[in-house]
Simulated scan of single mutants.
Amino acid sequence: MTNTLHRYSEHYAFEPITNPKPVQDDYIVFAMSSRGINDDHLVEKYRAFLRLALKHKPVNMGDATKGGMIQPRQDMNPTAHWRRDQRLDPEQVIAGIDGHTTVAAVFDNYQAMRDFVDELRVADLGISINISAPMDEAQRCCREAGISRHSVEYSIGFRGRLEKFLDVITLELSTMCGHGMVSAHFAKKMLEWVKEDRRTPEEAAHYMARFCICGVFNIRRAEGIIKQACHLES
């Protein structure tokens, strides 16, 4: 999916790094269908996809029309920031599927993603499956699961007036929502709040995840980035 191709890491550093740190905590698996071709019983297929994902402990999963495991609400006022429920709710995502959309599951380790893909191969749901991960890891997953990769799409990095970009930590956080719903300034604010001990890294990551409409914001990775940036123990 193009919306997950531009998740910033050292591989996209504006000044090339000789040995960029490998991305080993960010693996996304999507499911989607084509209208009128393989969309029969679609709600049941998408729900089956997400229930299979739950067995492998995803750090987030989502429905592109409603959001991820932690979503915004319209029945609250500003004071809720100090008392709202921060628990992830996968059942909300599953129950909310009501038609054409794309669904996704995000994992923080290769093995969980690979085991999930293997189960999808056996389940044969009849919908398209897309892996968004480092290219060699995606290829390895397909090989180990005994399936042939259909095609590949990749990012050529960031181009243009790079001096206009904010710092790389902010980019790492904000680009985890490929639709741009986690603003760079909001990410900076969350970093500042953690540094000021006004929020924990976990709370800040959950706040940002609420705004990612398709649910592919990697909450666990965001927590790690914030802890490292704020010089906290991981």
Rank of each mutant, 00 (worst) to 15 (best):
Q139T: 14
D115Q: 13
S132Y: 00
N77E: 11
T18L: 13
Y207T: 08
Q92K: 07
T65Y: 07
D98H: 12
M61Q: 06
R149M: 14
G126H: 11
M113V: 05
C142P: 01
S174P: 01
R140I: 05
T79W: 03
G96D: 12
S155L: 04
R114Q: 15
D115S: 14
P22W: 11
Y8K: 06
I94W: 03
D118G: 13
E91C: 00
S234P: 05
R140W: 09
E192R: 12
L173E: 09
W82T: 08
L162S: 02
H11R: 13
D63G: 04
E223R: 06
Q74H: 12
H11D: 09
D39E: 10
I225Y: 07
S128Y: 12
G67V: 03
A13G: 07
T65C: 04
M181F: 14
D136F: 11
R35Y: 11
F186K: 08
S33I: 10
V29R: 00
Q228C: 03
A31N: 04
D40E: 14
D118M: 14
Q24V: 15
I94Q: 00
A133Y: 02
I17L: 08
R210F: 00
K55Y: 13
H6A: 02
K57Y: 08
D115V: 02
F14M: 04
R121W: 03
S174V: 03
P201M: 02
C214E: 08
S234V: 15
L232C: 07
A209G: 04
A104V: 01
R210Y: 01
K189H: 14
A205V: 05
R143H: 15
K57A: 06
E10M: 10
A105V: 04
V103P: 02
D25N: 15
C230Y: 02
A184C: 09
N60Y: 00
T175E: 04
A184F: 08
H11F: 15
